[in-house]
């Protein structure tokens, strides 16, 4: 399977990664070879084999419904480039 330039451009856009026009063609090639490798894996017969969600044989850990966290406004806002009155502020998002 091979990806064309436009598909790569779209994927980059969806991931908000800026890719120069000149890089699209080489990237298409690299991504296509990854897909080829996946295709090769799919030749394996996995009928009747349970999908494996994790290499560790364990159940999803669960928490009790107790408030144990939060109340750290200063800490969560610390890395924000801009803020006011306890809010994060970002360039206006217009709908």
């Amino acid at each position: 399977m091979s990806l064309d330039k436009d598909t790569v451009k779209n994927i980059a856009y969806l991931a908000r990664i800026r890719v120069d026009e000149a890089q699209l063609e080489p990237l298409a090639g690299e991504l296509s070879s990854i897909l080829d490798w996946i295709e090769q894996l799919q030749e394996l017969d996995t009928d009747g084999v349970e999908p494996m969600a994790s290499v560790a044989a364990m159940d999803l850990p669960q928490r009790k419904d107790v408030v144990t966290d939060g109340n750290c406004q200063t800490a969560v806002l610390k890395n924000a480039p801009d803020g006011e009155d306890g809010f994060y502020t970002v360039p206006k998002v217009v709908e």
């Binding site: 408030v67 144990t68 966290d69 939060g70 109340n71 750290c72 969560v76 806002l77 306890g86």
Partner: peptide, 19 residues
């Protein structure tokens, strides 16, 4: 996460590092 869910709290006070 373990942060509280109450409605109407001061902004960003019910936020954990996970959120």
């Amino acid at each position: 996460s373990g942060a509280a869910t109450d409605f109407g709290a001061e902004p960003n006070t019910q936020v954990s590092l996970v959120d």
